[in-house]
């Protein structure tokens, strides 16, 4: 019994890292891509059209629940547990990796809070998901900055999480492979954060 419980710990951890990349990470990419439509010259039209395409995915609620909400809730809640059981000693050992280890957990918690608020004000607000709705939200400076922090935290958490994922699954083994992936994932972070911030700024311009 104890043995079974313990190897389920292993399984739960592995599912946690997996869920963070597939499907949650993939959804993040899709979401950033859709938002980026708003940066086009006729951003409002483009964005509304992209949203419309998504709205017509067959079995949308089913897909949304099983491929987004469920894995997201699992990754988030189990992640809080991981963040709580971790120790933090970057003050005593200020090596880059240890600082990133701490940031991974801090950005995870920020992203968790951010997503709840973000969903509450958009998906579950009862309003139609249009450019105009987002525009009204980000016109509030506090909300705008909250979005910026959330997007930067989420993209960092995703990019740095990819680095960790590659080790957890035994993909990058050697020190060199891990160094290269670290550099690549930081580039991914900068690019994704820029795309996300750019879109938020685009939403501040009225249609």
């Amino acid at each position: 019994m104890a043995q079974a419980q313990q190897s389920s710990q292993f399984l739960l951890r592995r599912l946690h890292t997996l869920a963070g990349v597939v499907p949650v990470g993939l959804f993040l990419l899709e979401h950033l891509f859709t938002n980026a439509m708003a940066t086009a010259p006729n951003g409002a039209v483009q964005f509304n059209r992209a949203v419309d395409v998504i709205q017509h995915i067959p079995l949308l609620h089913f897909v949304e629940f099983f491929f987004i909400f469920l894995p997201l809730i699992y990754h988030g809640v189990y992640g809080l547990y991981v963040a709580f059981t971790s120790g933090y000693n970057a003050g005593q050992y200020s090596w880059t990796r240890n600082i990133l280890f701490m940031l991974q957990r801090i950005t995870g918690i920020i992203t968790f809070v951010f997503i709840i608020f973000h969903l509450w004000t958009t998906r579950f607000s009862g309003k139609a998901p249009t450019f105009q709705m987002v525009h009204e939200l980000v016109s509030n400076p506090a909300y705008f900055w909250f979005m910026i922090i959330g997007v930067v935290a989420a993209t960092f958490h995703f990019a740095n999480g990819l680095w960790s994922f590659c080790i957890h699954w035994g993909i990058t083994v050697g020190a060199r492979a891990q160094r290269v992936t670290a550099a690549v994932t930081m580039v991914i972070f900068v690019v994704l954060a820029a795309v996300g911030v750019d879109a938020i700024v685009a939403f501040t311009h009225s249609a």
Partner: peptide, 17 residues
């Protein structure tokens, strides 16, 4: 894969330092 096993590692990488 059992209790306190490899999954507890969070890749802070202080050990190697």
């Amino acid at each position: 894969m059992g209790e306190g096993g490899i999954h507890e590692c969070g890749n802070a990488q202080n050990c190697v330092e």
